[in-house]
Design a protein around this nucleic acid. Structure first.
Length: 576
RNA sequence: UGACCCAUGGUGUAACUGGCAACACGUCAGGUUUUGGUCCUGAAGAGUCCAGGUUCGAGCCCUGGUGGGUCAGCCA
């Protein structure tokens, strides 16, 4: 059996480095051959696409190796954490298609046990209560290149530490007046090992434990211990915790009984071009009104891309494609877009919607006549069947599907030119009507009755096929065309002194069309339904659309557009 | 002037653990097409950060550089 390929049939992807470690551990019967992972968000913000990568990794590994995954909220800092974040995180993980079953845990559930662990450490002489002020702690920590200084409280007797720590818990001391620290090595070249703080005093209620506690454990004294309590075998986290691993192991060695040990493994976080990923920056965009909340369709949050029209499958596929490694990376957002197109191409109902309508009158089509024409719902999936589309003398087509003076390689409608109306007839442009500003108000065409359905008995070909909507049957809808939030692929690369990432915001990231014209088929569309608007892109009914009101469609992603590419080249040719 | 980590086409990830660099996205060209979509075919694009060393043989091992990242919250 090849050691670098997944054993599972049909899944021939080479193993990433974490899977290789897991297989090695399995081979050595480490922790009795168990695999148990966890996804450990802090409930202080919304999940983003980077978290999605981690979620897919953790749940994916467990699934592949017959293990389980816990959802654990790392809620050790009541200053920043809120219930609304817990709710949104749970919703997002479920929506992505993962299930933690009954294993929904909270670090705060372990506060009592964590306290006991701390007492154990004190009794071992491995922790002490330090009364240095925050300022003094900072000043005695040293720098990466200089060792720190030992706290004067470092060698107080165990009994005194025990007493002080108990009184810390009982609320005798003010915030910041003292803290519990591990006694490790103030001159360690690894800053994490310079007597890190284990517990700090916070006279503040916790969303889950209320007023029960006024001391709260730090991340380093909660995370590994929680892993240990839950029986986690592989604790996957991002690279910035690499320097914490010796500390992770140090605590476990002092606390654990028996052979079982969770193992921390670090991988590189996901970065995406044309967006920012840090919670702080995302929060800034929300708070300062650059976007319409955490789930604005332009946000890289899971709730944002969901509202935009992304599917769980496309995000899982994307996570698979980006891979897992340890080097810093910036994924091309085109890869994300490709994953969505690939998914929706196979599954999305096709429909015709004219985004920027201009009227076409078919002069030789009888005034009162109407027809119902057959249209294919999805050429990629016969099982999706057919539908009827109404046709009449007056229709709308896309304004830029007509040119009075067509450039080279423009295959669409122009004076004297014949094109096909999809599923309908061939039409030929005979002239245009303009208003006093020279704006075209109407295109006049004739049709060939012999070409019903879109093919001619004489076999003549047309180069262009246009989508259209019968004007009397048209359903007006609102369309929100979203584009990239930032103009630069690296928003943090600032061009002018004194500016920040927000100076790279794309001013055209949202273009709203109040009255696009859709075929009547769409009238029963429900929130989050996804469609391909033929020749335009994939669109999703906004999550917050109300039943009786005008439908709002969010553009998830455009279709690939060869013509746009040619037109752009022609433009650039002219400039030169 | 510390510790730890990282370095392969434009981007991302591989390379059976030492056997003459592959896949995906993107780009370009062509074919099919009632979506300038999809699909199909082909092409360009890295000789693996640099310099030494070990070896019959190095992207994989060793040494030394260079470049990048992380760490000085009572955040996670």
């Amino acid at each position: 059996m090849a050691s670098n390929e997944s054993k599972e049939e049909g899944k021939r992807r080479p193993l990433n480095f974490i899977e290789q470690i897991v297989e090695e551990d399995l081979k050595n019967n480490r922790n009795n051959g168990r695999v148990h992972t966890r996804f450990p968000p802090e409930p202080n913000g919304f999940l983003h696409i980077g978290h999605a990568k981690s979620i897919c990794l953790n749940f994916g590994i467990a699934e592949d190796y017959g293990g389980k995954t816990n959802l654990r909220f790392d809620d050790t800092n009541p200053l920043k954490e809120e219930q609304k974040y817990i709710d949104s995180i749970k919703e997002d993980v479920h929506w992505l298609g993962f299930d933690w079953e009954d294993r929904e845990y909270y670090a705060s559930d372990y506060f009592e046990q964590l306290y006991e662990f701390a007492v154990k450490l004190i009794k071992q002489g491995n922790a002490y209560v330090c009364e240095l002020t925050p300022e003094e702690v900072k000043n005695t920590r040293g720098t990466p290149t200089e060792p720190g200084k030992e706290s004067p409280y470092r060698d107080r007797p165990i009994e005194e530490n025990l007493d002080l720590f108990r009184r810390m818990r009982e609320g005798e001391f003010e915030e910041g007046s003292c803290q519990l620290r591990a006694k490790i090595d103030m001159s360690s070249p690894n800053m994490q090992m310079r007597d890190p703080i284990l517990y700090r005093i916070r006279h503040i209620a916790h969303p889950r434990t209320g007023d029960k506690w006024c001391i709260y454990p730090m991340y380093d004294f909660a995370h590994g211990q929680s892993d240990y309590i839950e029986g986690i075998t592989h604790s996957l986290c991002t690279l910035e915790f690499e320097n914490h691993r010796p500390l992770y192991d140090w605590f476990l060695d002092k606390i654990a009984e028996g052979d079982y040990r969770p193992k921390q493994i670090e991988f590189a976080r996901l970065n995406l071009s044309f967006t920012v990923m840090s919670k702080r920056k995302l929060l800034e965009l929300v708070n300062e009104g650059y976007v319409d909340g955490w789930d604005d369709p332009r946000m890289p949050t899971i709730s944002g891309i969901r509202r935009r029209g992304y599917t769980p499958g496309s995000i899982r596929e994307f996570s698979e494609k980006v891979g897992i490694a340890k080097r810093d990376n910036v994924i091309d957002v085109a890869l994300l877009e490709n994953s969505l197109r690939e998914d929706l191409n196979k599954t999305a109902q096709r429909v015709m919607t004219v985004l920027d309508p201009v009227k076409v009158v078919i002069t030789n089509y009888p005034e009162d006549q109407e027809e119902e024409l057959d249209a294919v719902n999805n050429p990629e999936d016969e099982n999706m069947g057919m539908r009827k589309v109404p046709f009449s003398r007056e229709i709308y087509i896309e304004r830029d599907d007509f040119r009075e003076d067509p450039p080279k390689k423009f295959f669409r409608l122009a004076p004297g030119r014949e094109v096909r109306l999809r599923y309908a007839y061939y039409i030929t442009c005979q002239g245009v009507v303009k208003d006093e500003f020279g704006e075209i108000t109407e295109i006049r065409c004739t049709y060939d009755p012999e070409t019903k359905g879109g093919q001619s008995p004489d076999g003549r070909k047309v180069k262009g096929t246009l989508h259209w909507v019968s004007s009397k049957h048209a359903l007006p809808v609102e369309v929100r065309q979203y584009d990239r939030l930032f103009m630069d692929e690296s928003p943090d690369k600032i061009k002018e002194e004194g500016k920040d990432f927000k100076s790279n915001l794309n001013p055209d990231s949202l273009h709203i069309i109040e009255n696009a014209m859709a075929e009547p088929f769409l009238k029963d569309a429900k929130p989050e339904d996804k469609f391909q608007f033929e020749r335009k892109g994939y669109f999703c009914v906004d999550r917050y659309c109300k039943p009786q009101e005008k439908l709002i469609f969010n553009r998830a992603v455009t279709l690939k557009d060869t013509w746009a590419k040619i037109a752009k080249q022609q433009q650039q040719g002219k400039k030169k």
